[in-house]
């Protein structure tokens, strides 16, 4: 564990807590893409299967259980909670996220570290996570005024993978022949998708004006 990875995990944890706070306290999911939440639930479900087969540390296991629990809870709130679901703008959240799942799965069947059931699903979860934010970014462009909590949620979600990139650089230079091309390239693609969001987020923060993404 290094400071970059801890910062990344804490940023990820914080982003989910922000979203849970928004949904649980003000019972609203306005501006939040259900499709991105569903993709993330699938990412965690296919990546954290190893909590049944292996044990790394208490931290690792607790974080995996929290990510699994929170992602499915958020999807449940947005789909079935009769107050929250009313604030979900389904006619704006129209990204065809099913078109992301199959190509990621096929790519995982073709490009992976080892051709085993767990490893292919793990690789699939990496590719899917790289593109999972797309429905949310599209929704933000359509939602004229993005509320602060949603903006902060997306920012910290993007920041977590950026910290992970620093973590991979650190590990590359400090550990003997440590390299994970698949993870690194997926992480770079994932972070690159946030580039313009980061630009407008920092700009709105500097000018202390509401966050607005150009259509």
């Amino acid at each position: 564990m290094n400071i970059f990875r801890l910062a990344g995990d804490m940023s990820h944890l914080f982003s989910i807590l922000l979203l849970l706070l928004k949904i649980h306290t003000i019972k609203s999911c306005a501006g939040v893409s259900l499709k991105t939440q569903e993709l993330y639930a699938l990412v965690f479900a296919t990546r954290y299967l190893d909590i049944f087969t292996g044990y790394i540390s208490l931290y690792n296991t607790l974080m995996k259980m929290f990510f699994l629990w929170s992602s499915f809870t958020i999807v449940w709130y947005m789909r079935y909670h009769n107050v929250v679901r009313r604030s979900y703008d389904k006619d704006q959240d129209t990204f065809r996220h099913y078109f992301l799942i199959l190509p990621c799965f096929i790519l995982a069947l073709l490009v992976h570290e080892k051709f085993t059931f767990l490893e292919v699903l793990w690789t699939f979860s990496l590719y899917l996570e790289a593109v999972a934010i797309l429905p949310q970014l599209v929704l933000l462009q359509r939602t004229r005024n993005v509320d602060n909590l949603t903006g902060h949620y997306v920012f910290f979600l993007g920041a977590y993978r950026s910290f992970y990139i620093l973590n991979w650089i650190y590990r590359y230079f400090t550990e003997q022949n440590y390299y994970k091309w698949i993870t690194w390239i997926s992480g770079l693609v994932q972070t690159a998708l946030y580039a313009d969001f980061f630009y407008y987020y920092v700009k709105s923060w500097r000018n202390s004006e509401r966050l607005q993404l150009p259509a």
Partner: peptide, 10 residues
């Protein structure tokens, strides 16, 4: 642990 590729990161 070399039978399953070891993923220590979240």
């Amino acid at each position: 642990i070399n039978d399953i590729t070891f993923h220590d990161e979240l």
